[in-house]
Nucleic acid binder design. Structure first.
Lengths: 367, 367
DNA sequence: TTGAAAGCGCTAACAC
DNA sequence: GTGTTAGCGCTTTCAA
């Protein structure tokens, strides 16, 4: 423990040491203490801190000096408890993984919108675990976040009704919820995929493979549906051996594409339904030196997609914009809880880089 | 607006519509209301909610039923205000950019540690702006976060002394602060860079360029120092035209490397001091078809570094581990505020992929 | 084992 | 303009 004399000695030190056992440990001052030091009432301090009009400049100065002297920080916890609006100026963001580039950019978009509203973002990763999702929603509700942006897991979401009834606004992003009517921000998964596959067909491809992520996920199903739309629209079959789902990692994608290419009747083109799968596919193609032989289009853009010898054509989403739009919708609903809900589509765009424009060529069997 | 009769009609609907104007909006129940419904005292509900021992199982059941019926969620804000420890079970994370892969992985590491302690993470991006840093620290202090993990901007950090004196534990990560003594988590920037450059020298290189980010940043200076160590240790000059600092984007790196390669006396090897710079350098080299001619080593690993024709050798940091270690230190200090502070080095490791092992070859002048 | 009373730090509502 | 009083939802303290 520090003695009083030590404390006194440190006061004049121009380079105070600040290990927690070196500096003077002084607990946070309260408004009451600031009031006492400034010689005013509690309420006057409150007015100054909250920049309410109608305090004489003399008192404002005295209060501000006292606050500075005591390193006063308003206690948002206490203020929130008492205030009529009960706003914590905090919103929650629940996504698959804060380290996943797609969601990291979405996070940044949410943060941008939050910043404009003076609101902080509390986030957590779900790892596709519906149990974690429920726990985290409960935890956020207990913290009384003002709203929630949620990229839901594949589970059922009826449990959210109670939270929404209790006045917690929720905006869903990337995937629609099951069993809840609310604002949803999506990409044009089905249409964009259909158009991309149609492009491959127009370039002459007939055997086109589809690789998708977790089958239960709405995005996976939508993109698969787009693929089927394009295939059947051109009178083509979508043979089961060319439709591969539940690909969960780069390594798995690489392996699945690899074995696909070693079969007798390999595809001449590949559509990859997601970021990590595209990366695995690129690896598999380059492993076999087929990057200029097998056509490929991926959903989601990724770093370096443009730099490969045959650049990778992609359907590029805009996750940052998705995050921004979702948060904007959340703030709109906070301002007007009665506004109608709806689905907002953030459009993707196709980027031509070469891999999607390769003509069909048959693979030399089992290289 | 919804009428009461519409609401009544919805009650038995198996697929209830849940737009905020559809369901019954019922404000959060308080502990007092749960107590009233269960026919017990407020304190008994508090005991049950906090799983305190010594409540008869009969009352526990009654309280739990009432809580469920009312969709009760404990109000952490209120509980925190009253509790003796004043813990909010929230820590703050301040980093350059949540969308930057390096920091996104660090974020995930912090989250992992926080999860083990039942703590949530509130994060924000600083964009290298010292003013934003101060504002956000103040905002987090007002929210009474239990601690802070901070990747500081290049400014002065004496202002943090007041926060630390007030009992806010802070752990610095990636870069040490100026003017504050506290726990710091760093990579072995200088040594790892020196060793990487020594490798280039051992492969015969004499003209080795260094490209670094924001010059004021400690990481930049440390890595530059490592480069100088290696060069002077081998009796080599580090000519000013080969030392390029303040490279702030992929595009800028690409341009700077490009012009470097067009000079009379171009380097035979390049050391890039950071993620985004490496990416720009790779682009510049490939543009000129020099990826197997000019040797290159980068600080920070990145996606696809291994897949290029000449794979990119890198000094790989472990940002996730850095985040985990930083948060662990924070929790250790929260448990024991008197523990001594120190610097923790999370080691990097060199990954051999080819680009760092190319022999020196002179570039055909101005291709 | 259960409950009543006080009060955490602040703001709302109302005096003066 | 400024101050007083009450109370947000909960935990602490102490009594029954």
């Amino acid at each position: 423990m520090t003695t009083l004399s030590e404390r006194a000695g440190l006061a004049g030190d121009p380079h105070p040491r600040t290990g927690p056992d070196a500096g003077v440990l002084r607990p946070r001052a309260t408004m009451r203490e600031v009031a006492a030091l400034a010689g005013v009432s509690l309420k006057t301090v409150s007015r100054v801190v909250n920049r309410e009009a109608g305090v004489s400049s003399d008192l404002v100065a005295r209060v501000e000096r006292a606050a500075l002297q005591l390193d006063y920080r308003p206690n948002l916890t206490a203020s929130n408890l008492r205030r009529a609006d009960h706003r914590t100026a905090t919103i929650g963001l629940l996504i698959e993984d804060v380290a996943n580039p797609y969601f990291a950019h979405m996070h940044r978009g949410v943060e941008e919108s939050a910043l404009l509203h003076g609101v902080q973002v509390i986030s957590a990763s779900l790892d596709e675990d519906p149990v974690r999702e429920r726990q985290l929603v409960e935890s956020f509700a207990a913290r009384r976040v003002d709203g929630l942006v949620l990229a839901p897991t594949a589970g059922e979401h009826g449990y959210l009704l109670a939270e929404m009834r209790a006045g917690l606004p929720i905006v869903f992003v990337d995937r629609p919820p099951r069993g809840v009517e609310a604002d949803v921000v999506l990409t044009d998964n089905r249409e964009a995929t259909a158009q991309a596959v149609q492009r491959l067909i127009r370039h002459g491809h007939r055997r086109i493979a589809f690789l998708g992520g977790v089958a239960d996920l709405h995005t996976t199903q939508d993109r698969l549906q787009g693929y089927r739309d394009a295939m059947s629209g051109a009178g083509l079959a979508a043979p089961p051996e060319l439709v591969i789902l539940d690909v969960r990692s780069v390594a798995e994608a690489q392996a699945r594409v690899g074995s696909l290419l070693s079969t007798e009747n390999a595809p001449t083109a590949i559509f990859t339904g997601q970021n990590l799968i595209s990366i695995g596919a690129v690896r598999a193609l380059r492993e076999r030196d087929l990057q200029s032989v097998i056509a490929m289009v991926g959903f989601d853009d990724f770093e370096f997609a443009d730099i490969f010898h045959t650049g990778i054509s992609v359907v590029a989403q805009d996750p940052r914009e998705q995050g921004r739009v979702a948060a904007d919708l959340l703030f709109a609903r906070m301002a007007d809880p009665g506004r109608p809900t709806g689905i907002t589509v953030v459009p993707s765009h196709f980027i031509v880089r070469g891999s999607g424009e390769l003509p069909p060529r048959s693979v030399p069997p089992a290289a």
